[in-house]
């Protein structure tokens, strides 16, 4: 029984972390579906979001419920601008160019953040309304931070589902992600849609960053966690939103269990080992469809 409780506790905290991976992976997937750009800087967008949250809430002393939306809106703007300035010129270039550009973007963001005087290379903390509170569910203990992460992820996914399903813009986004040219011909402003998607994806990243802040601290290198979201997105097949969520949860739980049951060191590489195993068996990810070039 005790073993089972321990196991469940690990699964619970793994799921909370997995939700963060899922949110970042969701950002990858949104951008990838719409523009075929794989954004290696997604983790850095999350980092910037966390720093903005820190700035508004801790430095400016705004209330959390004002600081959070402010940071999210700012990040949405930054995301849209990035698309406009950096990404648009390389859409249509080979995958390699895109990887390089977004990788470069990530490095610039990380270095830039560490050069901002009030941010620097130190770690920062800021508290959310959930910090320090715990709830017991039977024998299990969950911190409110963890619960908030899971609830927010569920809510965001639901909102995004409704958005893509029922709103005009959401449907236009779906059309653009299926076939840009065709969408363009039927009068959908594809360029604007792409910027919107980048904005949306950066906003999701900002939410993830602010939710993660109480757990891992705000730091210029916190974006590296985005690299763990890659396995999540790949597991999910890179093109599927439910896939990204499932992938994130799997990675989070595996990592948490590996940290508890396996020797030190396995926790950090668990995500990558899972990734390599999955790719060895299914090169197109778990949910991916195998497309090939038509000749």
């Amino acid at each position: 029984m005790r073993a089972f409780v321990e196991f469940s506790q690990q699964v619970l905290s793994g799921a909370a972390l997995g939700c963060i991976y899922a949110l970042i992976a969701l950002g990858f997937v949104l951008i990838y579906k719409a523009t075929e750009v794989v954004n290696f800087a997604q983790g850095e967008l999350m980092m910037l979001g966390a720093f903005l949250g820190y700035t508004f809430i801790s430095l400016f002393g705004l209330p959390f419920w004002l600081g959070l939306p402010l940071a999210v809106v700012c990040m949405a703007g930054i995301g849209g601008l990035l698309d406009r300035i950096v990404v648009r010129p390389i859409v249509g270039q080979p995958v390699f160019a895109i990887v390089m550009v977004t990788l470069g973007m990530g490095f610039v963001a990380r270095s830039g953040a560490s050069l901002v005087p009030a941010w620097g290379v130190d770690t920062h903390v800021f508290s959310t309304p959930f910090t320090g509170k715990v709830t017991s569910i039977g024998p299990l203990v969950a911190s409110h931070d963890q619960l908030a992460i899971m609830a927010t992820t569920a809510a965001l996914v639901a909102v995004l589902f409704l958005f893509f399903r029922y709103t005009r813009i959401g449907i236009a986004m779906q059309a653009a992600s299926q076939n840009q040219l065709a969408a363009y011909y039927v009068g959908i402003p594809v360029k604007a849609i792409c910027s919107l998607i980048w904005g949306l994806s950066a906003a999701v990243a900002a939410v993830a960053g602010i939710l993660l802040a109480p757990i891992v601290f705000v730091h210029a290198n916190m974006g590296f966690i985005g690299l763990k979201a890659f396995p999540a997105a790949v597991l999910g097949g890179f093109g599927s939103i439910p896939g990204a969520i499932a992938g994130g949860l799997v990675i989070g739980v595996v990592e948490s269990l590996a940290g508890f049951y396996l020797p030190e060191g396995f926790k950090d590489v668990a995500a990558y080992v899972v990734l390599l195993l999955v790719l060895a068996i299914r090169p197109q990810g778990l949910f991916g469809e195998g497309l090939r070039k038509k000749v």
């Binding site: 010129p89 550009v101 470069g104 990380r110």
Partner: peptide
């Protein structure tokens, strides 16, 4: 000063990667 050499280095590397990819592939 500040920022640390490593941080500036990696930023400049990133920026160059980006600029070369965009303007001089």
């Amino acid at each position: 000063s500040g920022g640390g050499q490593a941080a500036v280095d990696s930023g400049v590397f990133g920026l160059l990667l980006l600029l070369f990819m965009l303007y001089e592939a």
